[in-house]
């Protein structure tokens, strides 16, 4: 397509997946640069998937030092204190991911998400952030949007046996093959801030309850000045009170956000490994789609709850946007 052919080594290694998405897509993947920020179990899964798929490079950012909790659903870090002592999560994951596929450059950058400037984001085609506050998500999303090129932006979070993915592909054009004809398709994505500002009343009744519950928790953490995930069952009364306020401010019935769901989300904030695998898998697939331009991308939220087993897509954007 663009003149460069896959090497013999690439053809042999990627044989089975080239049969799924084609040689063009594989070439595009090998030129894509991916940034991840905030590494827990779900991101570890995602990194594995994207490195195996054969992206050009993967850059890891997470300056936190390893502790028991960080290791709980992360298969990239050996639980040996002699190995992990003194190293950051990003460094440890990098050590492990480098072995997964010698054709992918995996590296570490230090720093805080809010301190990275627009130029930094310009180096990437895909940015995935996790374990971040509401403000940090909005800020990073804005920086990506200000760039003239498209940077596909994703946030992902898992709590208890639930997971959420948000996608912003800005203005996304892709071709879709249906039978013999190829249709040009176009999708307009809202940024994170605009998406979560859509009045609840404007959303269809059947909208996933997880969407609302995640917004309540996010707001609670922001209002209380907590780090992401820093809630416990002791916070339940406060969370339920905030839910009431939000529901009444948005003039929706409180049944939109079941108390039992909020209780699960505040009680158990650690990730559930099977859900990490599922959300990390869906996220990997979406990033591959966005890079390769093949297949309908997700717009713009995805939810999974192991309790009912449904993996649901929700389009949360201003009706007229």
């Amino acid at each position: 397509m663009d003149g460069e052919e896959l090497t013999e080594q690439e053809t042999a290694l990627y044989d089975r997946q080239i049969r799924v998405w084609g040689a063009d897509a594989q070439r595009r993947l090998s030129k894509a640069h991916v940034l991840v920020y905030g590494i827990k179990g779900t991101i570890a899964e995602f990194c594995k998937n994207i490195v195996l798929a054969g992206v050009g490079s993967l850059t890891l950012v997470d300056d936190r030092v390893a502790n028991e909790e960080a290791l709980s659903s992360n298969f990239l870090i050996p639980p040996d204190e002699n190995v992990y002592r003194g190293k950051t999560l990003a460094e440890l994951c990098c050590d492990s991911l480098i072995d997964f596929n010698p054709m992918v450059r995996v590296s570490v950058v230090k720093g805080d998400l809010s301190d990275f400037g627009i130029d930094f984001f310009n180096k990437f085609d895909v940015v995935v952030i996790s374990c971040c506050s509401l403000a940090a998500k909005k800020l990073a999303n804005d920086k990506c949007r200000k760039l003239s090129k498209r940077v596909s932006f994703y946030t992902v979070d898992c709590r208890d046996s639930c997971g959420e993915i948000f996608v912003d592909l800005k203005d996304y054009r892709y071709s879709k093959k249906k039978l013999e004809e190829t249709n040009e398709c176009q999708l307009q994505y809202p940024c994170f801030e605009d998406a979560v500002s859509v009045p609840w009343k404007a959303l269809p009744r059947k909208t996933s309850k997880l969407y609302f519950a995640m917004r309540v928790i996010e707001k609670f953490e922001e209002a209380e000045g907590r780090s992401p995930g820093e809630v416990s069952v002791a916070d339940l009364p406060g969370v339920l009170k905030l839910k009431e306020e939000l529901c009444s401010a948005q003039s929706v019935n409180e049944s939109h956000v079941p108390d039992s769901l909020l209780e699960r989300l505040v009680t158990n904030t650690t990730e559930f490994p099977p859900v990490c695998a599922i959300i990390g898998g869906i996220l990997g697939q979406e990033v591959i789609k966005a890079i390769s331009g093949k297949g309908d991308p997700l717009k713009n939220f995805f939810f999974f709850d192991a309790m009912d087993g449904k993996g649901v897509m929700e389009d949360i954007s201003e009706p007229n946007a």
């Binding site: 089975r16 080239i18 899964e45 594995k48 099977p274 695998a277 599922i278 898998g281 869906i282 192991a306």
Partner: peptide, 28 residues
């Protein structure tokens, strides 16, 4: 040859992500 090999060898298309998702569902 790539296509012919797939047909002759009954090669199954496979990607990591689907397997990861399915494995998660199996454990659940």
């Amino acid at each position: 040859l790539f296509e012919a090999k797939g047909i002759a060898g009954n090669i199954v298309h496979a990607v990591a992500t689907t397997n990861a998702i399915i494995a998660g569902l199996i454990v659940i």
